[in-house]
Design a protein around this nucleic acid. Structure first.
Length: 521
RNA sequence: GGGCCAUUAGCUCAGUGGAAGAGCAGGUGACUUUUAAUCACUUGGUCGGGGGUUCGAAUCCCUCAUGGCCCA
């Protein structure tokens, strides 16, 4: 490497001592005519297929010593090398699992034997051809007669050593630094197999939900991520700008207003699975971008949505785990329908011993909270105080799946009022494992009432720009054409993924969670 | 936004005012089927950055950065 080339790496890569050693090996491989990054591989079997093929052949051959020989080629990452001298044992891992390679000097030749021992490192991708057999220790392995380097790893992976003891995998020095795991998720995935399983589970969850909705007559749609007016939730948006149109655009905070426009257009059941963006704090259950599932069904009310929700989540559990009973943070949670239903007012009366109906003003309710429990958030509206009581004192107790129903109108501008109680709307949120999982209403379809609510919200949040709801005139136009009565639903895919993978941090179920940019000073 | 805690070798960590360490990984060698292989020798450090106290700081103080947990 010339001096000029090395200066080009400045700030990008300054090889550590370990990396320099690997660079030397790389050069040596090239000097010996070995291409460290060949164009093509020649895998015939995954490791799992190799093990299965051998087990089947063994069963077919019975006790015969000279059964049929299975010749194959596997490929994967070198994750363990045990060098015994004339014999080398090495484990290769691929997407399916791992298998042991057995390399003897007498069988692969002096040169290849030396090359394997001296020029390969943990983390390199290799392929190996040979015959499957069982070692003296009883492990199904490949008696290698030839091997090839597929990709030289220049940086050492943060190695996690492991050992199987009585069927349990015991890990040693696993790559555990939370920040580094997320900053270098590729390394995390490479060395921590259970992390790969989290994302397989997440992908299956999404696929199962999609199938469930498809099978119930829902049409999957895609609506704008960049919106001229944001809405459908109380949250601050991210703002971007279209240069040519000289127009500010908002990244959506929900899909709601677009999906309901589709009901006006005659699409009776629609759903969308996609990314929402909220310009708010980052913590264990909040990431600035997160995945949401929303659906809307014409002629349903929130009772229909509740029945559908408990059926859908129980189905997802059954399909994912084979059971509607799951374990989350030490709790056994039964997701089978029907779930408990309790009104918000009753829940707060029961768990906080405050009947918020007795305190119709923000000042009065705040005083009652102060007397019963402690400090409520300063300057909160009445609706926000009710929300505070729910989040603070009720939510932590809702381990088993629970529908909390009938929310104050103040904090629900898109839901229909209860027929006999204009202060409350037909809305529910559902909770599992002490997490708020989703939100649903009998959707407001009266365009004049909707306009009044928008204006009411603007008055309520006049002094609080952060949660201001802009009036969406086009949405109101859509409603004026006539919107069928409908029930709508939104749920956080990330939180469902947390539930089904037994994680308490949203970052564990996001491949690349939001992290602060690291300051390199 | 506040409180507490953390940041030491590639990884996991010990070291709490007096000579920077261990295991694994890496290097050299030994070893005829091992499996955290083993054995011998060995390389590797801006102790997160900056400032201060002190004869002397990884250690005490201030500050900044990043992260974790809790609270708002």
């Amino acid at each position: 490497m010339s001096a000029d080339e090395s200066t080009q790496h400045e700030g990008v890569w300054e090889p550590t001592q370990l990396e320099q050693q690997r660079l030397i090996k790389l050069q040596q491989l090239r000097d010996e005519g070995v291409e460290p990054y060949p164009l093509r591989a020649g895998r015939t079997h995954t490791t799992a297929e190799a093990l299965r093929a051998f087990a089947e052949a063994e069963a077919a051959d019975g006790e015969k010593e000279d059964g049929q020989e299975i010749e194959l080629t596997v490929a994967g990452r070198l994750v363990s090398i045990r060098d015994m001298g004339k014999t080398v044992f090495a484990d290769v891992e691929d997407g399916d699992g791992r298998i042991q390679l057995f390399l003897r000097r007498a069988e692969i030749g002096d040169e290849e034997h030396r090359r394997f021992r001296k020029l390969l490192d943990l983390g390199d991708f290799v392929q190996a051809s040979g015959i499957v057999f069982r070692t003296r220790m009883g492990e199904i392995s490949i008696r290698v007669h030839s091997w090839e380097l597929l990709s030289k790893a220049l940086s050492p992976l943060p190695v996690a050593k492991e050992q199987e003891v009585d069927g349990e995998v015991v890990r040693y020095s696993a790559f555990a630094d939370v920040e580094e795991r997320f900053r270098q998720r590729y390394a995390d995935l490479a060395v921590n197999p259970e992390v790969r399983d989290i994302f397989r589970t997440r992908a299956r969850l999404v696929s199962i939900l999609r199938r469930f909705l498809d099978e119930h007559g829902f049409l999957e749609v895609e609506t704008p991520v960049m919106q001229p007016i944001y809405g459908g939730a109380a949250a601050r948006p991210f703002v971007t700008h279209h240069n040519q149109l000289k127009q500010d655009l908002y990244l959506r905070i929900s899909f709601e207003l677009y999906l309901k426009r589709l009901l006006v257009g005659g699409l009776e059941r629609v759903y969308e699975i996609g990314r929402d963006f909220r310009n708010e704090g980052v913590d264990a259950t909040h990431n600035p971008e997160f995945t949401q599932l929303e659906f809307y069904a014409a002629y349903w009310d929130y009772h229909d949505v509740m029945a559908f929700t408990e059926k859908m989540i129980a189905y997802a559990a059954e399909e994912l785990t084979g059971s509607t009973t799951i374990s989350y943070q030490g709790h056994t949670i039964d997701l089978s329908a029907p779930w408990q239903r309790i009104t918000l007012r009753d829940a707060i009366r029961q768990f906080v011993e405050i009947d918020y109906e007795e305190y119709p003003t923000a000042e009065g309710l705040a005083a009652a909270i102060r007397e019963a429990r402690g400090n409520p958030p300063a300057g909160a509206t009445w609706g926000k105080l009710v929300d505070h009581l729910l989040g603070e004192y009720v939510e932590p107790l809702l381990i088993q799946p629970t529908f909390i129903t009938q929310y104050p109108r103040d904090i629900s501008p898109l839901a229909k009022r209860l027929p006999d109680d204009p202060r409350h709307v037909e809305r529910f949120e559902y909770f599992i494992g002490a997490m708020e999982m989703g939100n649903a209403f009998t959707e407001l379809n009266d365009p004049l009432d909707q306009l009044a609510r928008f204006e009411e919200m603007q008055r309520l949040y006049q002094e609080d720009d952060e949660d201001a709801h802009p009036v969406d005139a086009d949405y109101l136009q859509a409603m004026r054409y006539g919107m069928p009565p409908n029930g709508g639903f939104g749920t956080g895919i990330d939180r469902l993924a947390m539930l089904f993978t037994d994680k308490t941090s949203i970052r564990e179920v996001l491949l690349f969670p939001h992290l602060r940019v690291r300051n390199s000073t």
